[in-house]
Design a binder for these strands. Structure first.
Lengths: 139, 139
DNA sequence: ACAAACTATGGACCATTGTCAACGGTTTGG
DNA sequence: CCAAACCGTTGACAATGGTCCATAGTTTGT
């Protein structure tokens, strides 16, 4: 497909798609059997772009995503160093998601507090990592 | 406490602490009863900085965090608009964490696949949002 | 056939989030 | 007392992740 369709289907702008391509995140081929300069994006570029969105939500950089997406979508005979990288990134993302979850819990507590006292506004939210399910890890 | 101690206790550099302060994320007072220019950081700045780390892991910008931290740590009589902002941010963070979790699941699947086939490297990981607990939301 | 819509390329530009260096003043341990 | 370590301010610098513009060629609907 051409870049416009890909952009529409993934909600990623053309400029951003080209930016990703320049950085090696996705690939395209010269248009099959045409003489123009239009590039042709494979069907799975849609999937790749969706994964990239998720990976960014997980806090990974373009450089990291490039490596990881390369490991997903192609053969990966570099089991030794590749898996090491993968393991490090998993730990990193786990930590980040746990922290994000911690913050989300705080936001929800704050919202609850506001709902129950809509006029006099003093939040008694404090004491990091309290009891209950306050600091569950979600693994 | 002074900035050096705060930096050590939170693992946030002095420069970054000052950067946050310039952007209104934390406050300091002129040193109590001293004539020098040293600032004094309250004890709860440690907590605030920890929350900031978590909030960044949740994908929030400095500007957003400034607003939210202000709502936590001070009185918040603006229930109407404030809670609206809070609600939007909660939804945003929920979506981001769900996406991040999706990606983490992919990483783990990829790792499992690599472990079971350490030499011939073709990952048959595909088909977004599969069965099992693959796309649980963690809420 | 012709305008509207699409495409590629190149480089400029931007916001965000820090980081660093320089300079001069302050505190503190020995 | 003196050097080492600390502090504040200013302003430059940098990496990341895009976004925009101009220019020029291509496709497509009517």
């Amino acid at each position: 497909m051409r870049i416009g369709e890909l952009a529409k289907r993934t909600d990623v702008s053309r400029d951003t798609i080209r930016f990703y391509e320049r950085h090696g995140l996705i690939q395209s081929a010269p248009g099959e059997g045409t003489t123009n300069s239009y590039r042709d994006y494979p069907e799975d570029a849609v999937f790749t772009l969706e994964v990239i969105q998720d990976a960014q939500a997980a806090g990974l950089s373009i450089a990291d995503i490039t490596v990881l997406v390369g490991q997903f979508l192609s053969e990966a005979p570099e089991a030794a160093e590749g898996d090491d990288f993968l393991t490090r990134k998993i730990a990193e993302v786990e930590a980040r998601l746990a922290a994000g979850q911690r913050f989300l819990d705080m936001l929800r507590q704050s919202q609850t507090a506001l709902e129950r006292a809509p006029q006099d506004g003093v939040n008694e939210v404090s004491e990091r990592s309290g009891a209950g399910n306050g600091n569950r890890t979600c693994n």
